[in-house]
Structure formats: C-alpha cells, structure tokens
C-alpha cells in the first residue's frame, strides 16, 4: 500500500515510532512470474499460462502431465510447500478444475510466491492422478476434494470420508448440482 502518511503532529515520543517507516528487510531478487512461466514452458510446451501477477502464477497442464510438472516445479523451481488443493465445478463446460496451490518455505526469493497448478478433467469421468508422491501434504486435501466433488484420485491410498459422515449417500456436496436443504 502506498500513500500512508504520518499523523501531522507527530510529537516526540520516548520510543519514536519507525519514521521514516521501516522498510521490510531487503530480500533476494524475487523470482517473478514471467521467468517462472518461461522456465515451465521450456520444459512443458503444452502448459498454458492462465494469469501472471506479481506474486502469483497460474498454469493449466493436461492431466497426464501434472505429476511430471509437479515434480519439476518442486525439484527444479523450489516449490516445496503445498498450501492447499482446491477444485471448481464448471458445470456449464462439463468440467472439473483441480488446482494445487504451492509455495516455498525454503527457497529465498520465493517465499512470497504462490504457483497455482491446475488441470481440467471431464465431469462425466472425474479421474485424476494423485500427487501424494510429489507433495506428501496433499493427502488430506485430496481426500477432501474427493468427498466434496467426487473426483477420484488414482493412486491415493485412502479416499475414505474426512469431513462428511460415513453414511453420506447423496451426490458430493460442493458440486453445483447439489442443492443445500432448504434452498
């Protein structure tokens, strides 16, 4: 944010507040979205860039390439920390979109960056490979996505219900054609 100013009459104080405002510690040169997108494109030409922002990059890969791409961004680019797995039900296009949000906890210059790695799969046959082998932390997030959207993560060792009751026998609740009771 910019344009913040000190109060007009800043009386001298025993512990003067940081003025001029303290700037955040200088960081290593941030690896920016464009560079990352170029690195990904050089290795995976089929990957499509959805958006680039200062601290965000979203790419869409074909479902068959997601695992290789995941391994690449983890090992070569430093995205070692999985934040979460989200999914969107694009019912009009008859597609599910699965998105892995990954950041970095150890690589300098990447700590403010999130890479969103998406794949689109047909709604009629919602099968996607599991990425547990790439990010172990994906375990619960994929289980949640499985129960909420009915997406089958192939290779996932345990897709039992995490949050839903064991005896839930309706369609998965976060699909757009599921209507909450009373709505």
């Amino acid at each position: 944010m910019s344009g913040t100013k000190q109060p007009a009459a800043a009386a001298p104080q025993p512990n003067p507040p940081a003025s001029p405002p303290a700037t955040p510690a200088p960081k290593a040169e941030p690896v920016r979205a464009k560079e990352l997108a170029a690195k990904i494109a050089s290795k995976f030409p089929e990957v499509k860039v959805d958006y680039m922002r200062e601290r965000r990059l979203k790419v869409t890969a074909p479902s068959s390439k997601v695992k290789d791409l995941g391994t690449f961004v983890r090992d070569e680019l430093g995205f070692d920390h999985l934040d979460t797995v989200s999914a969107v039900d694009w019912i009009g296009k008859n597609e599910f979109e699965i998105i892995y949000f990954v950041g970095s906890a150890s690589k300098p210059g990447l700590e403010d960056f999130i890479l969103a790695m998406a794949e689109r799969i047909p709604r009629d046959d919602p099968v996607a490979p599991t990425l547990i082998d790439v990010w172990l932390a994906a375990d619960y997030n994929e289980r949640e996505t499985h129960e909420m959207f009915g997406i089958n993560f192939q290779g996932h060792p345990n897709q039992s219900h995490l949050f839903l009751p064991e005896d839930w026998n309706d369609i998965p609740p976060l699909r757009k054609d599921y209507v909450s009771p009373g709505r």
């Binding site: 944010m1 940081a18 955040p24 510690a25 700590e111 403010d112």
Partner: peptide, 14 residues
C-alpha cells in the same frame, strides 16, 4: 507472511 508477503500496515511497522 507478515514479513515475506507484507500486507496492510505491516511494511511500515518494525
């Protein structure tokens, strides 16, 4: 994230 990806007034505070 308050340091790594500063938001709100955090960049101005020590």
């Amino acid at each position: 994230l308050r340091k790594d990806e500063p938001y709100c007034a955090y960049p101005e505070l020590d």
